[in-house]
Design a protein around this nucleic acid. Structure first.
Length: 926
RNA sequence: GGGCGGGUAGCUCAGCGGUAGAGCGCUGGCCUUACAAGCCGGAUGUCGCAGGUUCGAACCCUGUCCCGCCCACCA
């Protein structure tokens, strides 16, 4: 027996091997080594405030599987990890830290603040790298890139200047989304719409001549402070008398014209009259442009009413809304209100209500950039998988609006635009000494920074040294694959496509692979508020539920937090006091088992346990094998065995490795890992290993030798096949198993197995083994159903009318004897003979299986068993009968299908006859 | 309002034109010297509903009802 402990303990194994890989430079392929191009990009959102990993990070396992697979195929892999998000997210985290110290960023000043963020960034980046190692991610984490790295900064400025010079970046005053909490502009994508119950409030504007009034409807009464017109439909007879008239603003000393506009106004809605606030509503802004209306901004950056609001100045929007309504009521202008469902725009990050506001910002003209990005996917230069995302991608790029890229933040790439006292703009790679327009000196740089996604969009080439023409750029652009969550398809992927095509003249990657979002076991999105987040490291290394819950709902009462957690993860109820250390391998295998088209990946701890058990299975199978294979020498080629089980397992190995590669190549890790899982457990362990036991105890020397060779080969190959999914345990075991002398260092550098190189197609062996397995299964079922004690040996007779089949059964007597536990070798006979007393018959395809029960039999049990079999068989026969009786089926279905159906029917009828015979004999049993 | 996806065994999901699958759960029996994190058996589904196409439909088409997600400036 080998010296390995009886159960797999990931904690003892995993840390060791990562250190080993690093020490031997397993992942640091040199760019110059060969011409193969494989590059994977990994976006790395910042950790949360406590610096812990979230499940989204763990899902990058899919990328690692791709990388490890590619590396094993001899490709030159460059997996470029990086920390993304230069903007709001990071700034918010650090501002929150400051808040706890009773400070704001203004106390520090811009320079110190940025330094502070940098140090946090370095720290958390290092922590992430450490955590990625725990998960076994085979990137060179020493080369971790930050979006704000100085060399990336260079690329950002370069691209900004070029786009500006090409007229694709411009500065304009227009309506943008403003978050008063972040105090910055946002792009359309950073705004989320949330349904809410509001009211449709009606009030009257008196006409200037006092003769009449015009009633308008609004969901935001306070915006009337910025109203510069009221619009009616030109064809609306109700308001024809007011065309060209003006109205009097009740609180501000202002006349408001009545305008006619067929685009803005829907006669059916509300009162048919619309108040127009060009500075605070997107429709109204457009209307204002059409009619040359004044844009009156009534809001301060902090979301309060400014001096334009007259008596309402300094109120918050909510306060102003109430006050305006009160004042309208007092003025006798209120005309009613009714409930109204509406969509509230909220800031993605702070959830604050976003106010549209007129503001001067920088924009990217997206239309000319979007076209090439659309075409690249249409003509297949870039493939998107799963394919259903193509439509979403196209839809977004087709209706794309210009992209607001300036942010009023401190953390980010400062915009390389400089203003002279005269207000001229000079854009430059370096700070210019004088204004390009008027020559004035003492320029000031625009204080704003760029949207984090602007620099992220450059990632595919900025990380390779662009704008310098580097070797890396030449070798690794375009990348092979980009793998990420679908939630940043627009934010990031589409924009990388646009920028890549624009600056590099080619797509940034050949394939875009998208995975779903990890949610809790009940399908709810993971969030701090719900207390259903899980730190993947707790699953890997184990943790008490107390500790898990403390992270999920910090500071909450323990019992309450635990209850919430268990509700989100029902399967946890059966798990005692905490998560055991499932190991990174188990977690990785679990994550690979979800198909990529599922948008929500409902994480189930119980499922991870299942894959932990699989790892243990692998471990024990190898432990078993080690006793027999240590002396075997492998040369890399599969052996040519003669015994059925050996031939069979090599054939199955060929199928499994084939399926695995196909799965990984097609971005179906679920298929790939599933094929290997079933092969290893169901075929290799349950059948092959069991079948080798009688050979090792009672076979000839030659048989033992070929079995040892086969076993060694199959084990070594399986470990290589499994390695991308479960890297640690496969390395641990592979190092102990005999392997060809040419594979000394690490399984991570060994060739990935293929059907041709490592298996042997053998349909005959598969067919024969299939028949044998069915016969053994039938005999076992009889034993089990009649309650024969497992260690009791039973006499067994196998009958077949086909001579070749009988020969097979005779050759495999040893296998049957061992796996069924028969009393001596089973007898093999032709069909039709007398049946001895006390024997029960079962049918397995063309083989009659007669089990001697030695008085243990109960006629009633047997009757039941046979009736069940009969019922099923009759049903099957009926289905086929009906189908074949249909002349249209015979005429129209493909010949092959018809033939198959006939053969099946024949077989089933023979089986039926046997079962009926068996039933007739039941009475003789007792 | 538009678009996309889903409704299959108690649960989570595969399958997407030829007689319903997996894991977990349930259940009967086993500590059989690799593995009880295991082994050998067993039960369980009018594949959301209604039409249609087809020799044949869980799978294709149409309609319909639920449930998600994304996009959208209707006051």
């Amino acid at each position: 027996m080998s010296d390995l402990p009886k159960a797999y303990e990931p904690r003892d194994v995993e840390p060791r091997w990562y250190a080993y890989w690093l020490e031997h430079g397993v992942f640091s392929a040199s760019v110059a080594e060969n011409d193969a191009r494989e590059r994977y990009v990994i976006p790395m959102p910042p950790p949360n405030v406590t610096g812990s990993l979230h499940m989204g990070h763990a899902l990058y396992t899919l990328q690692d599987v791709l990388c490890r697979h590619a590396r094993m195929q001899g490709k030159n892999v460059l997996w470029q990890p990086g920390i993304d998000h230069a903007g709001i997210a990071t700034q918010t985290v650090v501002e929150r830290q400051l808040m706890r110290e009773g400070k704001t960023r203004h106390d520090l000043g811009r320079k110190a603040f940025v330094e502070r963020v940098w140090s946090w960034k370095e720290q958390s980046g290092g922590r992430i790298a450490e955590q990625m190692r725990v998960l076994g991610f085979s990137a060179d984490w020493e080369r971790l890139k930050f979006t704000m790295d100085p060399d990336l900064s260079h690329a950002v400025r370069e691209s900004f200047v070029r786009l500006y010079e090409e007229g694709l970046i411009y500065r304009d005053t227009r309506l943008i989304n403003w978050c008063s909490d972040c105090r910055t502009a946002l792009s359309d994508l950073e705004v989320e719409n949330e349904p809410a119950e509001g009211e449709l409030y009606e009030f009257a504007y008196p006409s200037s001549d006092g003769a009449s009034e015009l009633v308008v409807a609004t969901t935001r009464p306070e915006t009337m402070l910025g109203d510069t017109a009221v619009a009616v439909h030109p064809d609306d007879p109700r308001y024809r008398h007011l065309h060209g008239k003006t109205l009097r603003h009740p609180f501000l000393n202002r006349e408001i014209p009545v305008i006619t506009d067929a685009i803005l106004v829907d006669m059916e809605f509300g009162t048919g009259a619309v108040k127009v606030t060009p500075a605070h509503d997107f429709n109204d802004f457009a209307t204002g442009k059409r009619h040359g209306l004044e844009e009156i901004n009534v809001l301060n950056p902090d979301g309060t009413i400014n001096e334009q609001g007259g008596p309402f100045m300094n109120m918050t929007v909510a306060e102003a809304r109430a006050a305006v309504k009160r004042a309208l009521a007092e003025a006798g202008l209120e005309r009613g209100s009714k409930p109204h469902a509406l969509q509230l725009p909220r800031c993605q990050r702070t959830h604050t209500i976003v106010e549209p506001m007129v503001s001067t910002q920088w924009f990217v003209r997206t239309e000319p950039l979007a076209q090439p990005a659309l075409e690249a996917v249409r003509d297949g230069r870039t493939k998107i998988l799963p394919e259903e995302w193509v439509k979403t991608y196209e839809h977004w790029l087709t209706g794309i609006q210009d992209w607001c890229i300036s942010r009023q933040l401190w953390w980010g790439h400062q915009i390389p635009a400089y203003y002279c006292p005269g207000g001229h703009i000079t854009v430059g790679r370096e700070a210019p000494e004088a204004c390009a327009t008027c020559g004035a000196e003492s320029l000031t740089q625009d204080p704003d920074v760029l949207d984090t996604w602007f620099s992220s969009a450059l990632w595919p080439f900025s990380t390779l040294g662009w704008p310098k023409q580097t070797v890396a750029l030449e070798r690794f652009y375009p990348s092979s694959d980009l793998e990420t969550g679908y939630d940043i398809l627009f934010f990031w992927v589409a924009r990388m496509m646009m920028m890549g095509l624009h600056f590099m003249g080619d797509v940034p990657f050949r394939r875009v692979l998208l995975h779903g979002l990890i949610v809790d076991e009940t399908g709810e999105k993971m969030s701090k508020v719900k207390g259903n987040t899980i730190d993947p490291l707790d699953l890997v290394q184990g943790a008490s539920f107390d500790a898990v819950v403390e992270k999920a709902l910090p500071g909450a009462p323990r019992a309450e937090a635990l209850a919430k957690f268990k509700k989100a993860y029902p399967s946890v109820a059966q798990m005692g006091e905490g998560f055991p250390a499932f190991g990174a391998d188990a977690l990785r295998m679990t994550l690979c088992s979800y198909p990529p088209q599922s948008k929500r990946i409902a994480l189930s701890p119980k499922r991870i346990e299942g894959y932990r058990n699989f790892c243990n299975k692998v471990y024990n199978a190898v432990r078993f094998a080690l006793d027999y294979v240590t002396s075997v020498e492998l040369d890399g080629a599969p052996p040519r065995p003669t015994l059925l089980v050996n031939r069979w397992i090599l054939a199955r190995l060929a199928h499994a490795t084939e399926a695995s590669s196909r799965g990984i190549d097609g971005f179906r890790m679920d298929d790939g890992s599933g094929a290997l899982y079933r092969f290893f457990w169901d075929e290799l362990c349950d059948w092959f290993l069991e079948a080798t036991k009688p050979i090792f105890t009672g076979g000839t020397e030659a048989e033992k030798l070929e079995t040892r060779q086969t076993l060694a080969h199959v084990i070594e190959t399986s470990l290589r096949a499994l390695h991308p999914f479960i890297p640690f345990i496969t390395e641990e075991l592979w190092q102990r198993v005999p392997r060809p002398a040419s594979r000394p260092l690490s399984v991570a550098l060994a060739p990935y197995p293929t059907a041709a190189a490592d298996g042997r197609a053998d349909p005959e062996a598969e067919a024969e083994m299939g028949a044998l397995m069915r016969a053994i299964g039938a005999a076992r079922a009889v034993r089990s159903e009649h309650g024969v004690p497992p260690n009791a040996r039973v006499p067994l007779t196998l009958r077949a009318s086909d001579a070749a089949l009988r020969q097979l059964l005779e050759r495999e007597q040893r296998t049957v004897e061992f796996l069924v536990r028969t009393d001596g070798a089973p007898l093999v006979e032709s069909t039709g003979g007398e049946r001895s007393k006390g024997f029960v018959m079962s049918v397995a395809g063309e083989v009659e299986v007669l089990v001697g029960l030695r008085g243990l039999v109960s006629a009633a049990t047997e009757q039941d068993r046979i009736e069940r079999g009969l019922k099923k068989t009759r049903k099957d026969v009926e289905v086929l009968d009906k189908r074949l009786a249909n002349p249209k089926f015979v005429a129209n279905a493909p010949d092959e299908v018809v033939r198959e159906a006939r053969e099946q029917l024949d077989a089933l009828e023979r089986q039926l006859a046997r079962l009926e015979e068996a039933r007739a004999l039941v009475s003789e049993l007792e």
